[in-house]
Design a protein around this nucleic acid. Sequence first.
DNA 1: CCTTGACTTGGAGTGCGCTCCAACCCGTAG
DNA 2: CTACGGGTTGGAGCGCACTCCAAGTCAAGG
Lengths: 135, 135
Amino acid sequence: MKIGELARRSGLSAYTIRYYERIGLLPYADRDRAGIRDYDASILTWIEFLGRLKTTGMPIRDMVRYAALREEGAGTEAGRRELLERHREQVRVRLAGLSACLRVLDDKIAGYAGQTTRSTHNDKRQPERRRRRAG
Amino acid sequence: MKIGELARRSGLSAYTIRYYERIGLLPYADRDRAGIRDYDASILTWIEFLGRLKTTGMPIRDMVRYAALREEGAGTEAGRRELLERHREQVRVRLAGLSACLRVLDDKIAGYAGQTTRSTHNDKRQPERRRRRAG
DNA sequence: CCTTGACTTGGAGTGCGCTCCAACCCGTAG
DNA sequence: CTACGGGTTGGAGCGCACTCCAAGTCAAGG
């Protein structure tokens, strides 16, 4: 598979794929005689996983660290696991923070109750105390 | 309250506070004869709310839009509410995505089971199907 | 042979959200 | 009077994660 098809199948742009290779997020791809990258379908699994790490807010430098361990292969499992576990904790914390903010947002919106916007989910939570001009 | 104290109390840097004023996130603060900003404690509530919007991933330009409506005052409630409701939906979606990724992360970590890392939370979810050498 | 189009490279440019700087002003303590 | 420790401004610089470009190579089709 050439870079164009991988781009289509992975959802990344060809630019991004090359960039990821440059910085070590993707392994250096085999080139044919013309110097053109030839990808195996298995790379898609890895890209998908990278996507998860990205979605969960892992900075690229940490992803690169993980990718390096993965490239190194056997003997790095403990390190990879540790990295993932640390990240998981951060995700848990962010998730909790996000949920808390969501509740505040719900309250705030409830404070604007009665305005004529098409009401989505407005019945989910009654406006316990309404703040007027609170921001 | 001068900018230094507000910085300490809000957790923002003085740099950031000035920047927020420049771009319209914070209202233009009254200056004394020496040109020094004098803040009312009520600004803290607003900054805290801005923090929530930021935590939930609202881009600054949207925060600026909301801040502008707030500045405009009465008559903008519907717009503000709409903005917040749209944002809330996005937060809900991100929250769901994040939870899904967290589960994948859990599975992945379970795949590294047995390695000697101090085990945090490893008993929370049994490794239903373990992937070997999956990344 | 010539064009087309997908690919190659190193490096420059972009948008975001700050972060910091130079040069200056002001009020208070010693 | 002087030094100090705040504050002020406009604008430059930074780190991140891309995004794009110029100039070139190559394979296939007409």
